[in-house]
Simulated assay, not measured.
Amino acid sequence: MHASQSDPTRIVLVPGFWLGAWAWDDVAERLRAAGHETIALTLPGLERGSDPGAVTFESHVDAIRAAIGDGPAVLVSHSGSAGAATAAVDRAPDAVRHVVWVDTSPVADGYAMDPDLEGDGLALDAVWEDELEGGSMRDLTDEQLATFRKRAVLEPGAIVRTSVSLHDERRLDVPQTLVATAFSGEEYRSYAEQGARFLAGLGEQRALTIVDLPTGHWPMWSKPAELASIIAERAA
């Protein structure tokens, strides 16, 4: 079943590592105020008190796929959710009108972030200092940083370790926008050409454009109005 052109476009917001639907509050509020049906997801295992060791990669793909429904949907993926989001598009390319990658990229078949990760998951504290020193927290207030650290939960290990399996090349023709924040669009292209593993899927796309939004890696907090505007334009 395919949606007709007159059906409203649903916007599905998928947070990156350690985060729940709450991470999108400022963006979602703006999108809803503009009249867009907006769903922000808390993926399995990212609820506080849940068991991250029981989570599978497929459970994340299934949650995103269920939110997309029959479409048409604009899928918005931030950071480490890109693997599951790419797989969800691969499962239902006809239901996705546009994909917005927020400081991340569609992945290639076989990609796994860290297949050797041990334990139940990846903790924010394990990378916090590196993220601060690397500039990914640029433009965040002290209050936002404190909230992030307080509300972050363990990222399930299966999401970090599992290789993405892709089958339908129609995903490559779905219109897509990469919102480059912590790195510029030019840097994204350059890193991909140099063989950056995480960006191997970037060069495969046949309908992808890059938009620069200079800030840190968390634009839903540092520049929510600007990010919401970019997303809304793709949903129009």
Rank of each mutant, 00 (worst) to 15 (best):
P156V: 04
M137K: 10
A126G: 14
R234N: 11
A82V: 10
Q176A: 15
E233R: 15
V211G: 03
V74T: 08
H36M: 02
A28F: 01
R65I: 06
E233G: 12
I159V: 13
V55E: 09
P52T: 09
P175D: 06
V107K: 06
F183N: 12
L132V: 15
L41Q: 08
G121R: 10
R197C: 01
E129S: 14
H2M: 14
A192D: 07
D130C: 07
H217P: 00
W218K: 11
M113N: 13
V102R: 08
E58W: 02
S6V: 13
P224Y: 06
A87M: 05
R30G: 05
V107G: 06
I159Q: 12
D62P: 04
R48C: 00
A34C: 05
L145Y: 08
E187Q: 15
D109P: 03
Y191V: 10
P106V: 04
A112F: 05
M113E: 14
G53N: 00
P72V: 01
D25I: 05
G134Q: 10
D142Q: 11
S136C: 07
T42G: 08
A236S: 14
W18L: 03
A108Q: 11
V160N: 03
S59R: 11
S190T: 14
Q176Y: 02
K150V: 03
V179K: 08
L227I: 01
G71C: 06
A21V: 09
I210Q: 11
D142I: 04
D168C: 04
G134I: 02
F198Y: 15
S50K: 07
S222T: 00
G119W: 02
F183A: 09
A123Q: 11
Y191W: 14
A228F: 01
F183K: 13
A82F: 12
E186F: 00
P8G: 05
M220G: 12
T9I: 15
P214Q: 10
G80L: 13
G35M: 00
H217C: 04
I230G: 09
V164F: 03
V174D: 04
G16F: 03
A84T: 03
S163F: 00
L154T: 10
D142E: 15
I231P: 05
G157N: 07
L213Q: 08
R30T: 09
L75N: 11
V107M: 10
S190F: 04
A152T: 05
V102E: 07
F198V: 15
T177V: 03
V211K: 12
L117P: 10
H217T: 02
R171I: 02
H167E: 09
G134M: 03
G83E: 12
V74C: 02
D212P: 02
D62R: 15
M1D: 14
R149T: 08
G203D: 12
S229W: 06
G195D: 09
P224L: 04
E169T: 11
A67E: 07
W128R: 13
V12H: 01
A207P: 02
R91N: 05
S222A: 13
K150H: 13
P52W: 08
G135N: 06
H60E: 02
R189C: 02
R149F: 10
A235I: 01
I64W: 00
D70E: 15
A235M: 05
E58H: 13
A87I: 06
Q205T: 04
R91H: 10
S77R: 02
L132T: 11
L145T: 12
L132C: 13
S105I: 03
D103G: 09
L199T: 11
